[in-house]
Each structure stands twice: as C-alpha cells, then as structure tokens.
Design a protein around this nucleic acid. Structure first.
Length: 650
RNA sequence: GGGCGCGUAGCUCAGGUGGAUAGAGCAUCAGCCUUCUAAGCUGAGGGUCGCAGGUUCGAGUCCUGCCGCGCCCA
C-alpha cells in the first residue's frame, strides 16, 4: 500500500512539473524527520530552485497550491524552507491495507543465482562461515519474497589444498585406510576430528618441510581421481559436506545444488574456458620475467588505474590451473556461457530436503531428471572481502571474453570477517600476545585450529535459551520447551549476524551474542509472541474473532486513526515491503534486521499504550484487534525473511 | 610500495540518491510487575561525526590532502 502511494505521488508530481516548469527532474521521496511533518516529504523544490531561479520556499508553496487531488492523499503543504510535505488519507490507507491492495513488485527478469557458504570440506564450520551462510540465505529470502526466481548454489572445493592436507594427515601420518576412515565417519563428529587433524598438519609441515612433497603428490592424485588418496579425499569431502549441511540446517539454511570442483576438472570445464580465453586473447603466454612459462591475464584488464599493474597468473608454468582459472569457468557456466553442463544426482544428507550434487557420470540421470541448474541472468557470489581481488579478476575474465552484460550482472556480495574480542579469546582459552590483548578484535585462524566452531556456538546458545525457557515455563512439556529454546537460540544467532552492515568487521563477543535483550532476535520474537498471546487470551475468554473486512469500514478506520499514536504505529507496520525492497536495492540485509527491530519496538509501544482486551468501546476494540493481527502478520513476515521462527511461547 | 575498507556517545553500531533539532542497543542512574507474560516499558545523563581544506543556499553524507586501524596484492 505504501509503495503504491509513493509511486502515485511521484507520478502526479512528475507530471505536474513537466507541464508547469518543463522539468524532467527526478522526483525523490523521503521520510520526514518528525512525524508531525506528515508521512512523506518531497525535496523537489530544492532541485527546481536552481533551474527556476526562485526560492525553494516559493516553489513549494506554488506546487502545494497547484497540484490537484491525488487519490489517497489528504493534503500537500509547503513547510520548512522548501519541503513539500504529504499527509495521507488515513482511512483510505488503512482500508487499502485491510483489503490487501498492493502494487506490483519490481521483479528482475530471469533467474538469479546466489552462491554462498562455500566452505572447504576439510573441517568443521566456524563463525566466519556462519556469517556467510546467514547473509546469503537471508538475501535469498529477500529476493524470493519480492517475487524473484532464485537458485542457491553451495560450491564445494573438494580437490583443493585444504582437503589434500587432511588426506595427507590420514594417509601418511595416521596411516589410516579408507575403511578405517569410514569407521571414523560413522563414529560421528567427523568434522571436529578433521578440524584438529588439519590444525596439526600445519604445524607438522612447519617442523618437517620435506613432508610438503606429500601434499603435492596427494594433490595430483586427487585431481587425477586415482589411487587411495583420491578415495580418501572423496570420503573426507562428502562426510564433511554432510556435516556442514546438517549444521546449516540447524540455522534454517538450505541449498538447491552443490557444484563440485572435481566435476569442473573431470568434465573439462576448465579446458573449455581455457580455449575461449586463449582464442579471444583474454590471456597470453608469458615468455619472460618472473611469470615466464605461465598463462597470465594482463593487469590492465582488471585495474582501471594502473597500466603497470601486475598480471595475474591463470595457469602456472607447471601446467596447474589456479583457483581463479577454475572460478572463471564456473562463473561462465553460471551464466550459461560455457556451452557445457554437469550431470546431477541427488545428494544424500540428513536434512531430508531435495538437494542435488554435480557428477561426471550420466548415471541415473535418465530415470530421475534433475531441475535445470545454472543459466542465470544475475549472479551473486557471497564471498568475504579478502577475496575481492580474485573476484575482480573473475569479472575481468568475463569482460575480456566480451561478456560485458554478464560482467555487469556479476555481483561480489562481499562482507568483512568475523573476528573475536580479546575477552572472548581468553574465555575460550586462546593464548594472546600482549599486543593482541590491546586490540579491539583478533583475527582467528582455521589453519591453527583457533576459533569458534559453529556447532559449539549453536549448542551454547541453545543451552542458554533452554535455561531461560525452563525457568519461565517449568510446567510445559519438555519437548516443546526444547523446540522453543532452539528457535530462540537460532533467532539470536541469525539476528546477531545480520544486524551489522556487510563491510563492518564483527568483533564477536560471546557475552554480547548470548544476550537476548535489546536489539536482538529474541526481542523481535517476543513482540510477535505477545501479539499471539492477545489472540490466545481472546479465545480463552470465549470471545469471537471479529470479521474485520465487514466490521471496519472506512469511516470507522478514519475515526480510530484520528489517534496519532495508532496512526504512526500502523504506518510503521506497513513499511515491511518498502524496507525489503530497499534492502535488496542496496544489497544490505541489515536494513531488514533494523526494520524488524523497529517494528518490534513499535509493537511493544502499542502493547503498553493500548490494552486491547480491556477496551470497552466495541469499535475501538475491533480496531485494536485488527492492529494486533496486522502487527503479528508483519512481524512474522519480516522474521521469515530473516530466517527466524516465531516460537509458540516465550 | 599499490588496491580495498573503516574511523559517529564510555562500548558495539545505524545513519537510501547531500536537506528540517545526528539516532539505536549495551553499560550507568531514577522509576514501572494483582493488568494482554518485566526476554518488556518510561525517563535522565552522555557527541569538536578522526584532522585540515574545498564544492554548495545547505556536508556525518560529495572532492582533495593528511593521521590512525584492518584486510588484500607485491
């Protein structure tokens, strides 16, 4: 409803200034700083002032007098030193909401691909990975609720150095056969076992530099897909991916397809991309200097500033393709530009939902056709900002191949890292130097095995929530209390990861994350639960639910919304879609989290200000019940976008 | 050395395309539970928006130069 009015006002003003002043200036709308200025403000007079050589104030007054009636607008008036303020017709507005009048959403044509999570399948997920997955998943939810077709990909680098290192650990150090590794997998917590093994490998390499030969030997075996190392790599990667998917499912994060690096190699995706790159002269063979014998992309391709920018090596002199090279091939496939596709099969996992994984064999494809993957018209890569250089090279690759449109539709959805506060490090038993203790935050390293594992954090949050729920509802069923505690813990975690804008480093503080008060997920959940409680109490008292559409006519709405407090609250509650649209445009899920918090604040104000069930005036009571229902609906929708559930009680 | 990002209240952070008196949460202090559950609400104190210039009728927001911090590349 709000967006519809925005568009209508924009159109009316735009038409008017075109005829009246022959101006095609963009008509901007903003929210006034103070609510008594009205619901919308147009700074258009400031824009016109220069062209017309008149004071903004005079223009605003002229406009206010001359623009005729606009449906749904009560009045236009000049204010301040040149604002044109708009007051909406409250009863028309409320009636529009009640009857679900909406404007058509601005949907992007074609399919949007969002790649996120993308964790190396060699150890347990940590908090940094959580930020990635939660950001990506929330962005997907935002796009979907706005009507976009979205495909979620989780890329699995199952042939890289990180997996190789764990395989080296199993094969050379622990001397374990595939059967023995399988037994470890069956024993559970395999991702945790690998976490420690991987950390110990880093220190082993350091003390025994000769052992690095094991790594390159293993890497070659894995890439070729032969021998016991390849078998181990396959076992390790699949088991760890299953663990990651189980962890993410706890957070309500799911995927459509898992493209794997092994298939990029085996199905010759890279070879095809390599041919394209050579053919279109996007890369060249270096014959001198430090990169002699390598295929490189000239620095000028991905840097606008310096001609002498260092070239980027795509294929090393030993013939091994770099990570960026494979990424260019993958990006081409995402846009349907490679002229090749994977084969697919279902990926067995504990979550139970439909999930596909790439394979290099046609196999059962004919029996059970998969959905069509790839071929997107817009691609978001959720990858942390440390990799922005590499992401720039990938986009430069598309450009150099002549795919300008796709290069422009490739978005590096970047975010800053999650670090730990010194206090939290000490609490977790991580030793710090005196220098680190004085920092605001300390970067953690998966290589050294330092950091907070995702499942540990979730467990801690659930335990804390369970304690709170138990103390408030000792009489409730244990299973339900458990479910409620899970939902609160996940709400707290998802909200915490979303409340910061993407390029702010999160200094993770355990105490802060464990807080369920103030600007947190549980605060918003609590507001929704309170709204639900009013309904429950109504039913318990044997009172009927009103039929709002028939009992609240425009006149009644007008009478009730004369109350300024109610009007402001209704207005706030009606901004959900506008806030989501804005968050999509800016690529900032934090805006939705902020809105959710403000919406919950508004509801809590309403809750304290207007005792709904005790209201004696019948019309007002029906109206307040409607407000309650509307708040509840908008809170649930907004939380849904954030991937947060509304518990049955709190 | 080059690139990217950050610097706003004691702490952690918001501040669409420049616009009206710079906002939250936490922490601190003072209040509110016989009420639709206090995971809540009301109020108070707390700011040279890193510094210096510039553009503009108007700059936390745009430009330039410094300073400090982080990350990436070499």
């Amino acid at each position: 409803m709000f967006h519809l009015l925005e568009k209508r006002i924009q159109q009316a003003v735009s038409d008017h200034i075109k005829v009246r002043y022959d101006s095609s200036a963009q008509v901007a709308l903003e929210q006034p700083k103070q609510s008594d200025f009205g619901e919308l403000a147009l700074p258009i007079a400031f824009q016109l002032a220069r062209q017309l050589k008149k004071s903004p104030k005079a223009i605003a007054e002229e406009l206010a007098g001359e623009i005729g009636a606009i449906e749904g607008v009560a009045s236009l008036h000049a204010a301040g030193n040149g604002y044109l303020n708009v007051r909406l017709d409250r009863s028309i507005y409320a009636h529009g909401i009640l009857n679900s009048v909406q404007s058509a959403a601005d949907v992007t044509a074609g399919k949007t691909i969002v790649e996120h999570t993308n964790i190396n399948p060699n150890k347990a997920a940590h908090i940094g990975h959580l930020r990635n997955a939660i950001l990506g998943d929330t962005f997907v939810r935002m796009l979907r609720i706005a009507g976009n077709q979205v495909e979620v990909q989780n890329y699995i680098d199952n042939t890289g150095v990180q997996v190789a290192d764990v395989v080296v650990g199993f094969h050379y150090l622990e001397k374990k056969s595939p059967n023995e590794v399988q037994a470890l997998i069956d024993a559970g917590k395999f991702d945790y076992f690998c976490w420690d093994l991987y950390a110990s490998m880093s220190s082993y390499y350091k003390e025994n530099p000769d052992s690095l030969a094991w790594r390159s030997e293993t890497l070659h075996a894995i890439e070729a897909g032969t021998g016991v190392q390849a078998e181990l790599a396959h076992l390790v990667a699949d088991a760890v991916v299953q663990a990651h998917i189980a962890t993410m499912l706890r957070l309500n994060v799911v995927y459509d397809v898992l493209p794997r690096e092994s298939e990029i190699l085996h199905l010759q995706f890279w070879a095809t991309a390599f041919e394209q790159l050579k053919e279109r002269k996007a890369i060249y063979f270096e014959t001198e200097g430090k990169n002699k014998g390598c295929w490189v992309m000239p620095g000028s391709a991905f840097s606008d500033f310096k001609e002498d920018e260092d070239s980027k090596v795509i294929v090393r002199s030993n013939g091994i393709v770099t990570y960026v090279g494979k990424d260019i091939a993958y990006q081409l496939w995402k846009f349907g530009l490679l002229g090749k596709d994977f084969y697919y099969q279902r990926f067995p996992h504990p979550g139970g939902y439909e999930l596909w994984v790439t394979t290099d064999q046609p196999g059962k494809q004919a029996d059970e056709p998969s959905p069509a993957f790839g071929n997107g018209s817009r691609v978001y890569n959720v990858i942390d900002s440390r990799q922005s250089y590499l992401q720039d090279v990938v986009v430069a690759g598309l450009k150099a191949l002549g795919y300008e449109k796709q290069a422009a539709a490739s978005v590096h959805f970047s975010y800053e890292m999650v670090a730990l506060t010194p206090g939290t490090c000490i609490e977790l038993g991580i030793a710090l130097s005196e220098e680190d203790k004085r920092r605001a935050y300390v970067e953690v390293s998966g290589r050294k095995g330092l950091g907070v594992k995702a499942d540990d954090l979730i467990d801690t949050l659930i335990a804390k929530a369970a304690e709170e729920v138990e103390s408030r509802h000792p009489e409730a069923e244990a299973a339900v209390n458990k479910r409620v505690a899970d939902e609160i813990a996940i709400g707290a975690l998802r909200f915490f990861m979303l409340k910061f804008t993407r390029n702010s480093v999160i200094a993770f503080d355990l105490r802060e994350a464990l807080s369920f008060e103030g600007e947190t997920g549980p605060y918003v959940q609590y507001a929704a639960v309170r709204a639900e409680n009013i309904w429950r109490k109504l039913a318990e008292r044997g009172q009927r639910m009103p039929d709002f559409v028939n009992e609240l006519d425009a006149a009644a709405m007008g009478r009730q919304l004369a109350d300024e407090g109610c009007w402001q609250l209704l207005l706030q509650a009606s901004h959900t879609d506008v806030s989501i649209a804005r968050a999509i445009a800016s690529g900032e899920p934090a805006h939705v989290a902020k809105y959710a918090f403000q919406l919950a604040q508004a509801f809590n104000t309403f809750y304290h200000e207007y005792p709904v069930l005790a209201e004696e005036n019948q019309e007002k009571k029906v109206f307040l019940l409607w407000m309650t229902q509307y708040f509840r609906q908008q809170l649930e929708r907004t939380l849904g976008v954030l991937g947060i559930a509304v518990p049955e009680y709190m």
